[in-house]
Nucleic acid binder design. Structure first.
Lengths: 229, 229
DNA sequence: GCAACATATGTACATTTAGCCTCTAATTTA
DNA sequence: TAAATTAGAGGCTAAATGTACATATGTTGC
């Protein structure tokens, strides 16, 4: 009867698909690797999990090191564990997606040395990716497409104050289909979780739109009903 | 610039929440542990990932060793990686749920020595579980509750030939709410993926019900439309 | 002042969902 | 053997939601 865990040489890492929404485009954050294997290749941000970190803590640290940001909305969505997915040994990767509101200065200056540079790339213009990162991306995109229909994750991609047109753009880009403005607005307002701020956009040409906020508290009360967005 | 992965002592395992549907009850398969830690405790089936196995292969092997069955429907749903979740060291557990059709001989005779015995337990009557297995179970149940609304996983819990009453029972048990027989039947038949076998149940009291089969091929054609069950 | 642009909204109809009871067919019981 | 019991099977209606569509309003720019 064994009381010591049988082990083989292995480790586990985090890989993140970081989505940002910027000027009507859905983008992800890619890094240019500064280390072997796949040196100079584009890859998803990621790193080995810390010895005394939980998975969530590692994921947060990894993104913080890369973007300087904290309190990023992220969810674990799949674990990739094929035997030969990493050239240097058995590495199991727990994949997260993160959703970021882009605005202001979008330049990302990586703090870590493992990334030479980082860029926001339109999801429709992805280069060839290192490792199995294309698969990791594909599954992450599929997951947010599915989840956006049933949970209010779109708001994580928008500033705290947003317009209904911006919200609709997020849905259209992610669902990859045109939505009717009248029906979209009617439906979103019917949920009763958008607060009309009685403010207008500033500094835009032509008619300024009304600004709204997503009322998380109101939504939480309705949570068990799992309404469909 | 390191070219060798930094590692610490760790391993990864698989834990399975195996759901079975039996006589109007949703049950899970629990094992009584035969090894420390938590010897003699009830726990979810699980084991260490094999050195040359993918995660899916490990999960299938683990269930096959326990039940003798193969081709079990299973899905990975979450990875648990808290630092101290295992008393003997850092163990990351990739959790799967499996859905089994129970019938005939339901006795489970574990082949592996790490399980003293295995039993099907009603999900409403669970004993105290080893490790963080209560959390693993809770999240698995939540996941199948959510998924059953949008994907035809209920059929994995039924025999190949089933009645609409049996199907309704599955939905009622998992969603934990009473459904109207007339509306349920109308809706399920309206999807056009249930094939009326023109056969009746045998060996039942009173009026025998019509038997149906789930037409996976027809469903696959509709897949991208993601209809709601 | 008018054209252009963007926001904002209302109406009609179709589809789905919710709520409900009675008929039919079979077995069991008196 | 007929009546009672049980389970399957189905139709109708109102409410809610979804779909399709065009015009009014408010602002800037020329």
């Amino acid at each position: 009867m064994k009381e010591i865990l049988p082990k083989f040489d292995s480790t586990f890492s985090i890989d993140c698909v970081v989505f940002g929404f910027d000027e009507g485009e859905l983008k992800i954050l890619l890094i240019e690797r500064n280390e072997e294997p796949f040196k100079d290749w584009w890859a998803l941000p990621g790193n080995i999990v810390g010895e005394v970190e939980s998975l969530d803590q590692s994921a947060s640290r990894i993104l913080n090191e890369l973007t300087g940001l904290s309190n990023i909305y992220m969810e674990q969505y799949y674990t990739f564990g094929d035997v030969n997915r990493h050239p240097q040994g058995r590495v199991v990767s727990i994949a997260y997606y993160a959703l970021l509101r882009l605005g202001g200065d979008k330049a990302v200056k990586p703090i870590s040395t493992y990334a030479k540079q980082a860029h926001w790339i339109n999801v429709k213009d992805l280069p060839r990716l290192a490792f199995d990162h294309q698969q990791i991306f594909d599954k992450g995109l599929e997951k947010i497409k599915r989840r956006i229909k049933h949970q209010p994750i779109a708001f994580e991609l928008l500033p705290e104050k947003f317009t209904l047109t911006q919200l609709q753009n997020v849905y259209e880009i992610i669902l990859n289909k045109k939505l009717d403005k009248r029906n979209f607005r009617k439906k979103m307002l019917s949920f009763g979780v958008l607060r009309d701020l009685q403010e207008k956009q500033q500094g835009v040409s032509f008619r300024a739109a009304t600004l709204y906020k997503f009322d998380k508290r109101k939504y939480a009360k309705l949570f068990e009903k799992e309404i469909s967005f």
